[in-house]
Amino acid sequence: MNRRRFLSGVIKLFFLLLTVASGLIALVYTYPARIRKLKTVYIPVLDEEDIPRRGVKTVTYTYRRGEHIISTRAFVVNHRGSLYVLSPVCTHLGCLVNWHRKKQQFLCPCHGGRYDIEGRVLGGPPPKPLTRLPLKIQKGKLKIGIKV
């Protein structure tokens, strides 16, 4: 190995190491320093006497995430004697589904996902049933638990 080859090898190695180090620094710097644990908070959405006796009721509610006020909805369902709350977030890519009363199905407007009244997938791309949100009845209010 002559002097020229050796020096050009050293220079290449130097720049290779420099590139790798810069890339690592950029990655560590860019990755979020703190990832906050989400915690469940209960939000009142309905008076107890407005809970449906049968079928699906769409409720809307708002909550804060930092400075942001987020407005969204959920489905309160009373079906065959059991009361539960379904999240409207489609399990495919997160569009909000709608209740179609005639068909008795939740329909996703994005890619045609379909769910039955219990949130089970009937067709389309969704991989999982609709998420059930925790609920409790407290001081005459129906409250649902969401992660904030």
């Binding site: 560590v28 710097y29 990755y31 320093a33 703190r34």
Partner: peptide, 9 residues
């Protein structure tokens, strides 16, 4: 203060 290597960059 918070960003990792932020002071360095």
């Amino acid at each position: 203060r918070e960003v990792r290597l932020g002071r360095f960059v």
